[in-house]
Design a protein around this nucleic acid. Structure first.
Lengths: 233, 233
DNA sequence: GTATGTGAAGGTGTTCACAGCC
DNA sequence: GGCTGTGAACACCTTCACATAC
């Protein structure tokens, strides 16, 4: 005979931790799981629509504006997970939707960002945010390069990487951007977290090992290219 | 994101043709569907392992090296889809695996890249590839900025964006990188495709509409940040 | 008629459990 | 003992179909 529904005892610590962190993540999300990138696309498309004078948008119009093979059904499913503010037979009030999505995505308030590594990539990100994303403010910049340290970028003094602990804790940055070489990334990440940063955007081509409470997004240029080459090969 | 296999030109939409094209698409994928980013991570981790002197690697070791919550089962499933070259009881020959993964990812040969838009971001990518990814060569660079045009970057002359059609077709670039403002991206993409580029890495914050035969990967910095802010909010 | 919202069905990716082999 | 390889179970996400509301 076979015992059923046996409680899983004495699991491996890694598996257990994984499960616990999954459960936590689930509880925090509740509403949305892997649909976040889509919600962001809806938000952007709706901003454009509002800007272009559209007051009401249907799921079909929104799907077409987003492109990327997203269906109107998908749009409705995603939106309905946030509540019911469409009007049947009419569509969605664009402004209401933008606001709702903005709130869900955390785009209804401003954010302070610390950039570590101010080479071309750090520069690119800073410039991009500065003139395109009003909600994100570069509040701190660090680098190791002596010729950079002490200079200013749009009023922000570039500090030496070693000054991180001295400067950062006072600035209320919740987001850190890591654009340093792979060898330095793990250490920089840990130091940022120690200074109160709880979300990281990592461009270093490696996996960061950090406490589960820290949210990390990694952008791996080599990975993206090799996905392209796979399809070319 | 993987586009759905859709017959690109409606020459003969018979059931037979549909089935054939599906089978073809399946045959091309067969091995890998959404696991490509993981395969790349395995490849990188294995390169490190080989570099560090490991000759044999188990699925567990590989999983731990990759991190990111990937299980050893996941590793085995992914690898087994490429064939059976593990030795039961022992593990995988690291060198054999690296080579196999390299072949699957198209990293067993060199690639020529055209960059359009040579601001900070274009510069960052070029520099990154130049000194870290030997397989990728910057073969062409374009920009609109008069002060840039005519100058050289590592021996590559920076051409004016309007010269694209004149210069690019002779260079055999299969990959294009778009780091221009959103307003110019669609047009640039179409022109690159017209010049024979069939894979694009797009940094412009918008959706490109292109023929299905073109593979596109989009990196959207604002999207990544807003995913972070969602978890912070 | 038109478009939303949603349970149910269908697909796809991940995890489990164990057979097979060293 | 150890580790791979894999069908089956499971969980998740997407699509379908249609009830619901304007």
């Amino acid at each position: 005979m076979r015992a059923k529904a046996r409680p899983s005892n004495g699991r491996k610590p890694t598996a257990q931790r994984q499960q616990a962190s999954d459960a936590l993540a689930r509880a925090r999300d509740r509403v949305l799981i892997i649909s976040l990138p889509r919600l962001f696309l809806y938000h952007r498309a709706l901003e454009d629509a509002v800007h272009g004078g559209l007051a009401v948008v249907t799921s079909r119009v929104l799907a077409d504006r987003v492109g990327r093979g997203i269906s109107s059904t998908q749009v409705r499913k995603d939106l309905s997970s946030l509540g019911n503010f469409g009007r049947r037979g009419q569509g969605y009030d664009a402004t209401v939707l933008v606001n709702k999505l903005g709130r869900v995505l955390g785009l209804d308030r401003d954010w302070r960002i610390a950039i570590v590594g101010f080479g071309y990539l750090g520069h690119a990100l800073a410039t991009f945010l500065e003139f395109r994303e009003a909600k994100f403010h570069i509040a701190a910049i660090f680098d190791q390069e002596p010729s950079l340290v002490g200079t200013h970028w749009r009023g922000v003094r570039i500090g030496h990487a070693s000054e991180l602990e001295k400067i950062l804790p006072h600035l209320g940055c919740s987001i850190g951007v890591i654009t340093v070489p792979a060898a330095a990334a793990q250490s920089v990440a840990e130091r940022l977290v120690a200074c109160g940063v709880t979300a990281l955007l990592n461009f270093a081509p490696m996996t960061l090992k950090l406490p589960a409470r820290v949210t990390v997004r990694s952008i791996d240029l080599a990975s993206e290219l090799s996905i392209l080459t796979h399809y070319l090969a």
